[in-house]
């Protein structure tokens, strides 16, 4: 009897602990708009930004967490999660690219060093995620090995995935190409910067975190 009581106690406590601490990760290559989306979510539901954004790659070089974000659906449902914004995953980082963008040599080298550490940390954090939103720039070619590696790792860990085709406000945007590259996933086209289709995105979050 004691054992049964303990089983149910552990089962329910782990169930509620998991639900109240759902970690939702934003992953993807650099400059896809992860932090812009994180800021959109935080502005919409907390009234504050999460991090700085820039046109230059590797602006986010540390994993950042915003705890207890609660979003509400039109029918009254609520979803709470800890939002984890991660540095863009890349296979190469060249400090000379930062020099070209006008950063001084010492700062460019430091930025490159931080960016490499950021990529390592972002991959380490994969194991802690309960659900992941992969943020892709819909103006770019989705057939990159980094994208395929991220998707493959999430599949291997059995982590639910929502694919976001960001920057649909831009002329070169092509959601069909992303859908063709990853036919196994639902793809939501949004503009995180301008808030376009963001309601559809929030609705999809309820599905992916079920």
């Amino acid at each position: 009897m004691k054992a049964i009581k303990k089983f149910f106690s552990n089962f329910f406590s782990s169930l509620f602990r998991k639900k109240s601490q759902v970690k939702l990760g934003l992953y993807g290559p650099p400059n896809g708009g992860k932090t812009t989306l994180a800021n959109r979510i935080c502005e919409d539901w907390l009234g504050e930004e999460m991090g700085s954004v820039s046109a230059m790659a590797h602006e986010t070089r540390e994993v950042t967490i915003k705890e207890q974000v609660t979003i509400k659906a039109k029918d009254g449902r609520e979803l709470s999660f800890n939002l984890v914004d991660t540095p863009g995953i890349a296979t190469k980082i060249d400090y000379e690219e930062f020099l070209k963008a006008g950063i001084k040599e010492k700062d460019a080298k430091e930025r490159a060093k931080e960016a490499t550490k950021g990529v390592i940390d972002a991959i380490k954090w994969l194991d802690d995620m309960d659900a992941v939103v992969i943020v892709l720039d819909s103006t770019k070619d989705p057939y990159s090995q980094v994208n395929i590696t991220i998707v493959g790792n999430l599949q291997a860990r059995d982590i639910p995935v929502l694919l976001v085709a960001n920057k649909i406000d831009l002329k070169k945007s092509d959601i069909k190409k992303i859908k063709a590259a990853f036919p196994q996933y639902d793809v939501i086209g949004i503009s995180a910067k301008h808030g376009k289709n963001i309601e559809e995105f929030y609705e999809a979050l309820f599905e992916v975190t079920k």
């Binding site: 190469k92 980082i93 490499t116 991959i123 090995q145 590696t149 493959g152 790792n153």
Partner: peptide, 23 residues
């Protein structure tokens, strides 16, 4: 494997220096 690819990226990042800029 997908996990090995991720490890390859991590090891690549850890190896980046003035001469080796990644893969």
């Amino acid at each position: 494997t997908a996990e090995e690819e991720a490890q390859l990226i991590q090891k690549t990042m850890a190896s980046i220096n003035k001469k080796f800029k990644g893969i």
